[in-house]
Structure formats: structure tokens, C-alpha cells
């Protein structure tokens, strides 16, 4: 008899991460996540839910149940455009947009986001450019994102870039603040504070 092919689709309790839900719920004001009634309002109002692999309602249920691997590697959070429709409509006042952010941060920290998918790459590139110069330069941000995901696409976008440049809407220089040292002291102090929290044994929020 042929061997059954569906084993890898079955989830066992032992494969779940029982702390995943509470970890995500540890974000500021995040405890309401655990009170979700699965009404589906979030999925109904979400303009992106038709394109997601799991709807927001499913993601919330999966977070609470501990499906860490599936949630962190799903496309759902990377399709969230942060429009806050779900957050303002949720009858249990769950900050779903912020939950999505927490999942994004954890996925980046643990390196498990979908590889070469442009959204997390854009987020990381944005972060690093602001870290360095204090401002975001839209042109270079996009160039770096395309180089790391799909360089061919950059060629296709060249016309748009040219049309923007022609109208003075995109420069070739890099935007920067003047007192970068001030900003770096600010960032270093934030990093030290986070390290101190961790040493003190406090739960570090995603």
C-alpha cells in the first residue's frame, strides 16, 4: 500500500510554542490580544486580506495558539500596510496593527521572514539608512531594495525614476541631518537601556 503523504501537514501540540502568544501580547497595550473573540471584523475591513496567506483573524488565533513558525514565515504581516482599519474597528480593542509590527520585528530578529521578499528588505534598508543619516532618501532606498531583491525590476522602474527626477521630485544626493553625533548618542543610549533591561532579567518585548 502506498505511504500516506500528509504527515507533514499535521500539527501536534508538542510542535507549538506555548509562550509565543504571551510574548507577542507583551507589547505595550498588547494584553488584549488574548481576549480575541474571533469575530473576523479585522479580516472583513482589511483591504489586504484577500491577498494574504492567512487572514488577520487567523493570524491572531495562530499567535494565541502558539503557531510561531507558521506566523513568522507567513506573508500576511508583510502585506500589512499599517492602515489601522482593524485596530479602530476591533470590538475587543486589540491593537492588531501593532501585533503585526511585533510579528515583523520578531521575524527580522530571528531571520525567518520570507527571503528575498521585498517588504522586509525595504524595512531593514530604511532602518539602516535612517540609523546612519537621520533621514530617509527615497531614491537610494529603492535602489538598495531592488539590488537585494530583484535587480531586473530596477531597470523597469528606471523610467519612473527619470520622470520624477525631471520634475525635481527625486534627487541623486543623500539626505542627512547636521548633528548626526547627537542622534548616535541617542541611539547608543537606547541600545544600552535595552541591554540593561535584558541583564535585569526583564522580559524583552519583540
Amino acid at each position: 500500500m502506498e505511504k500516506w503523504q500528509g504527515w507533514d501537514k499535521i500539527q501536534y501540540e508538542a510542535g507549538l510554542d506555548p509562550h509565543f502568544g504571551t510574548k507577542i501580547a507583551s507589547i505595550p497595550g498588547g494584553d488584549k490580544l488574548l481576549a480575541c473573540i474571533q469575530c473576523g471584523t479585522c479580516s472583513g475591513v482589511c483591504p489586504l486580506s484577500p491577498y494574504m496567506d492567512y487572514t488577520p483573524r487567523q493570524i491572531v488565533a495562530m499567535i494565541r495558539a502558539g503557531f510561531k513558525a507558521e506566523v513568522l514565515s507567513s506573508y500576511t504581516t508583510w502585506l500589512c500596510a499599517s492602515c489601522y482599519s482593524c485596530t479602530v474597528e476591533c470590538p475587543k480593542e486589540i491593537k492588531i496593527t501593532d501585533v503585526m509590527y511585533a510579528v515583523k520585528r520578531m521575524a527580522i530578529q530571528e531571520g525567518v521572514y520570507p527571503k528575498r521578499f521585498p517588504t522586509p528588505v525595504l524595512a531593514s534598508e530604511f532602518f539602516h539608512s535612517v540609523e546612519k543619516t537621520g533621514r530617509s532618501t527615497e531614491s537610494w532606498l529603492l535602489v538598495r531594495m531592488y539590488l537585494k531583491t530583484n535587480p531586473f525590476k530596477m531597470l523597469k522602474q528606471a523610467m519612473l525614476g527619470f520622470n520624477l527626477w525631471r520634475r525635481g521630485r527625486m534627487g541623486v544626493g543623500v539626505e542627512s541631518i547636521k548633528r548626526k553625533d547627537e542622534l548616535h548618542r541617542l541611539f547608543t543610549a537606547m541600545e544600552n537601556e535595552t541591554r540593561a533591561e535584558r541583564r535585569a532579567g526583564q522580559e524583552v518585548r519583540p
Binding site: A81, S82, Y101, K104, R105, I108, P120, L122, A123, S124, F126, F127, V130, G134, R135, S136, I177, L183
Partner: peptide, 12 residues
């Protein structure tokens, strides 16, 4: 400086 908008919030 940058306000720390959407994309930044997703990292830190």
C-alpha cells in the same frame, strides 16, 4: 530627523 515611520517601526 526621520519621524520613525511605518518601515522603521517594523524593525525597532
Amino acid at each position: 530627523n526621520c519621524c520613525g515611520a511605518t518601515s522603521y517601526m517594523a524593525v525597532d
